[in-house]
Amino acid sequence: MIPVLPTPHLSSRTGAWRMLRPVLEAEKCNGCLVCWLFCPEGSIRRENGSVSIDLDYCKGCGICARECPRRALRMVEEASFMGEGGGKLA
């Protein structure tokens, strides 16, 4: 056994750590991509001038909401999404 392992290899989705969930108000967003730039996890998707949030690895740090120049992102208690689908991932 040689200690060389293929990467990436992700066994858990760190989105499960999240206490606060970023919620995008699309009508306020002008696609400036500041949130995409500053997301430590690379959890913001960008396509055709707009953004969406991939919650699998979003830890809910809140940098995107704080840095958004148009306040188009809000951090919402994760617990309020329970049972709505898209909640905490294993």
Binding site: I2, P3, V4, L5, P6, T7, P8
Partner: peptide, 17 residues
Amino acid sequence: PAYYVDPERPAVFAPGM
């Protein structure tokens, strides 16, 4: 070598265990 640094086949050498 059976294993070597190759961006086509990315691997971690001496990962944590």
